[in-house]
């Protein structure tokens, strides 16, 4: 009996010493994950220096879990011996309660060729789906972030530089060149003189001689109608020939030129509205009649402000 007791007393500590030479702990950083979250799975082996661990390969054990990254062993020393840590990153794309089964760790001890193994503990965690907030408002999907187009700024800068350069070139070579300046000044001219000068200008243009008969008749009647408007204060430009003749017949000075004006305007109407091609002498006569209408109706020196263009050399 004493022998048995001694055997137990000696053998149990030996067994316990052997049992403590390696300890494996498996753990995850938390027990609740969302779908697609990274799951940090660590396998910690506490052992002494006489133990050689064969790097565990546990991919086949993780049937429903994807392995994102296998961790390299990180070895550190502590009071109990050495600590080997494998940290892997896993993920799962479906919600479930997942259990990573016990992982088999194989190792050898010093001076012993026998391959031994030890199992880690199993780890259980939950993978949840993203909760749908039914009461929340539907929100817009944010548009993709636009990156600033630096090329555009470069173009603007180039354009600005070109503009500034262009301005300086223009200023240097063109702007300072002396050019005649056309100035207009307002002068008071007697109305009949102004009308006669307009008629002379029209005569010099030789419109009917160049074939623009209709234009000639339109212009000459416009000058005379404008003259009537200003001389007799009649709305002559807005009146038809018949209406204008009626108005002239009621005017003391207008009546003096009623016959000639009637002939003048009716002739022009034929050319303007009836495709009538007058003889050369009719065209000439139109000018004579127009001048006669003006000279016969000069009652007072009615002056009118007219804009006169004067060309002056500019100061350099």
């Amino acid at each position: 009996m004493v022998k048995k007791f001694l055997f137990v007393l000696i053998f149990i500590p030996v067994l316990s010493l052997f049992a403590q030479e390696i300890k494996v702990t498996a753990a995850t950083d938390t027990t609740d994950y969302l779908i697609g979250d990274y799951i940090k799975y660590s396998l910690t082996i506490q052992t002494d220096e006489n133990v050689f661990i064969i790097n565990p390969f546990f991919k086949d054990s993780l049937k429903s879990i994807d392995v994102i990254k296998y961790g390299d062993p990180v070895v550190s020393e502590n009071q109990s011996g050495k600590l080997i840590k494998y940290e892997s990153i896993l993920s799962r794309y479906d919600s479930a309660e997942v259990t990573i089964p016990e992982i088999k760790i194989e190792y050898r001890t010093k001076n012993d060729t026998t391959l031994k193994s030890i199992l880690s503990n199993a780890v259980t965690f939950n993978v949840h789906s993203v909760p749908v907030a039914m009461k929340e408002e539907i929100k817009d999907i944010k548009p993709p972030i636009r990156l600033f187009n630096y090329l555009f700024i470069i173009y603007i800068i180039i354009a600005l530089v070109l503009l500034i350069a262009g301005y300086f070139i223009y200023k240097k070579y063109f702007k300072n060149k002396p050019q005649p300046v056309i100035k207009s000044k307002v002068e008071k001219i007697p109305l009949h003189k102004l009308t006669l000068s307009k008629l002379e200008k029209l005569e010099k243009e030789e419109l009917w001689q160049k074939g623009f008969v209709k234009d000639y008749h339109s212009r000459i009647t416009e000058i005379i109608r404008d003259y009537f408007e200003k001389q007799f204060n009649l709305p002559a430009l807005e009146q038809t020939t018949t209406d204008l003749l009626k108005l002239l017949s009621r005017h003391p000075s207008g009546i003096k030129v009623l016959d000639i004006t009637s002939k003048f305007l009716n002739n022009a109407d034929l050319v303007k509205f009836a495709k009538f091609i007058p003889l050369e002498n009719v065209n000439l006569e139109m000018m004579t009649q127009a001048k006669e209408i003006v000279t016969k109706t000069i009652t007072a020196q009615k002056e009118i402000e007219a804009e006169v263009e004067v060309k002056e050399a500019a100061n350099v």
């Binding site: 020939t241 018949t242 209406d243 109407d269 009836a274 495709k275």
Partner: peptide, 10 residues
């Protein structure tokens, strides 16, 4: 008349 004048329009 074979042509229109402003008097006709008015």
């Amino acid at each position: 008349r074979g042509y229109v004048i402003p008097e006709d329009v008015r």
